Simulated scan of single mutants.
Amino acid sequence: MSYFLSKAGMDFFIAFGVVIGGATLAGVGSVFMLMPPATVMLDTALRLKIWAIVAAIGGSIDPVRVIESNISLGHLSPVAQQICFILFAFLGAHMATELVRLICKGAL
């Protein structure tokens, strides 16, 4: 159980950090490019969401292979774990996107 919680927590925070970091740096870059930072940050956060999930779960097709091979063998516990890891990564990316939306809301 400890491995599961630590891996799920890391997936959450990695996805959260990818979106927040990318949106923040896009906002800084938009100032140098004379573009509206709030608009650029929100657009970047929305576009980074899926990539944050991919980065958090390992950046490869391995989680999908784990799901496929364990379903074919009838082992559902590893499948449920992988799906939970993907859900935690999604929650992290989604919460970061909503935080960027909340921060940029007053500027739009």
Rank of each mutant, 00 (worst) to 15 (best):
S2Q: 06
S2I: 12
S2L: 09
F4V: 10
F4H: 08
F4G: 01
S6C: 05
S6G: 02
S6W: 10
A8P: 06
A8N: 11
G9N: 08
G9A: 08
M10E: 05
M10G: 09
M10R: 10
F12P: 07
A15I: 00
A15S: 13
F16D: 05
F16R: 05
G17H: 05
G17P: 06
V18P: 03
V19N: 10
V19L: 06
I20R: 07
G22C: 03
G22K: 10
A23C: 03
T24N: 05
T24I: 09
L25R: 05
L25C: 01
A26C: 01
A26F: 04
G27Y: 05
V28S: 03
G29P: 03
G29K: 10
S30N: 05
S30Q: 08
S30G: 07
V31E: 07
V31C: 09
V31S: 06
F32G: 14
M33Q: 12
M33G: 08
M33H: 07
M33Y: 04
M35C: 04
P36R: 12
P37F: 07
P37S: 07
P37E: 02
A38V: 01
T39C: 00
M41S: 07
L42M: 07
L42R: 05
L42F: 09
D43T: 11
D43L: 10
T44M: 08
A45Y: 05
A45K: 04
L46K: 14
R47I: 08
L48R: 10
K49V: 05
W51N: 11
A52R: 04
A52T: 07
V54A: 14
V54T: 12
A55Q: 04
A55Y: 02
A55L: 08
A56D: 04
A56T: 03
I57M: 08
G58P: 06
G59Q: 09
G59H: 10
S60F: 04
I61V: 14
I61L: 11
I61P: 02
D62N: 11
P63V: 02
V64W: 14
V64C: 07
V64L: 15
R65G: 01
R65L: 13
R65V: 12
R65Y: 09
V66E: 04
V66M: 03
V66S: 01
V66G: 00
V66F: 02
I67V: 15
E68K: 12
S69V: 11
S69N: 15
S69F: 14
I71L: 15
S72V: 12
S72G: 00
L73N: 03
G74R: 03
G74H: 01
H75R: 14
H75P: 00
L76I: 14
L76G: 03
V79E: 00
A80W: 13
A80T: 14
I83Q: 11
C84D: 09
F85L: 13
L87A: 15
L87I: 15
L87W: 10
F88K: 07
F90W: 14
F90S: 14
G92E: 05
G92A: 10
G92W: 09
A93Y: 09
T97H: 12
T97C: 12
E98I: 04
E98V: 06
E98K: 14
L99I: 15
V100A: 00
R101K: 13
R101V: 01
L102A: 13
I103M: 15
C104W: 02
C104L: 04
G106I: 02
G106M: 08
A107V: 12
L108K: 12
L108S: 06
